[in-house]
Write a protein that binds this DNA or RNA. Sequence first.
DNA 1: AGAAACTAGTTTCACATGATACGAGTTCGC
DNA 2: GCGAACTCGTATCATGTGAAACTAGTTTCT
Lengths: 167, 167
Amino acid sequence: MSAEATGAGTRDDELKLDAYLPYRLSVASNAVSGLIARAYQDRFALTVPQWRVICVLAEDGGLTQGQIVARTVMDKVTVSRAAQGLLTRRLVARSDHQADGRSHVLALTKEGASLHAEIAPLALAYEAALISGLAPEEVALLKRLLARLQAAAGQLSGDAPPPSPTV
Amino acid sequence: MSAEATGAGTRDDELKLDAYLPYRLSVASNAVSGLIARAYQDRFALTVPQWRVICVLAEDGGLTQGQIVARTVMDKVTVSRAAQGLLTRRLVARSDHQADGRSHVLALTKEGASLHAEIAPLALAYEAALISGLAPEEVALLKRLLARLQAAAGQLSGDAPPPSPTV
DNA sequence: AGAAACTAGTTTCACATGATACGAGTTCGC
DNA sequence: GCGAACTCGTATCATGTGAAACTAGTTTCT
């Protein structure tokens, strides 16, 4: 092993990149996202945004793009492009929103639904493979902590950003 | 609260996006990365790759780009571009590698080092703000779990990717 | 020594992403 | 009702990223 392990003797007031949480988070997320993205791309020619749209439509039924934006944490533009791709592939269908002419309601077509049914087990298998070797309560804790971090980041984005270096 | 919480009644064989770990991970990471990236950008006109390069140079002294690539998890090209930006701003200096004419050794200049000294406390303050409200052992566990996920993802990338949907 | 195989780093290209601007439709105020 | 202010979704633009090609330098094999 090359050098000082990640374990104990790290002083709190020093910055070690390997121990820096935002770095660790980003690296782990990139690794996982890359894996998943490649899987969807290779097997089904779906981008991650497209996959997410399919997911929420499968869960919640017909939604407008605005609702999808609110539901997933994606940009307006990203959702728009994902929807277009899915439309041309006839995986989702669009119907005019009755009360609002600007908006449309998106819903899975039969093909979209069966594609979802086909991918979902694979997605779950990936998740299972990733967390294999973790205790269930560890996974639950992980999810809770991630949610906390996300909330804290959102909080800090709004505030006058500099958390005073009160070290 | 809107609907079924993340807590109990989710069946394992169903795919709920909100409970899907890769999704949660990606969303949390994006939130945190965005926060950090904006901070560095606004205050110091540094990109995240540039900041990472500064960090490892501050930790480990003179390194070649190849070593930086190995140390951080970044692409060759990303490191190259980050280094160029830092060079033109005179935050790092380049000296020819004695034993290998293709390679150069990068090291922080005095300005680079003082910039690092200036940013590091802020970076740590951000981390502290993010994990405030978490118990120290929770944070430690989080880091361990992230490392595990990263390792598992790397593992799966190499293998014949499809974890059989053995659900 | 000289040619083939390899490596460090850069350049080029294709693509995905998000900020901004825009057009169409809706709502509010009068 | 009619115009101003607003919202949904799309189009345009600038930027960042990684894959692949390329250059320069090094190692290996004969």
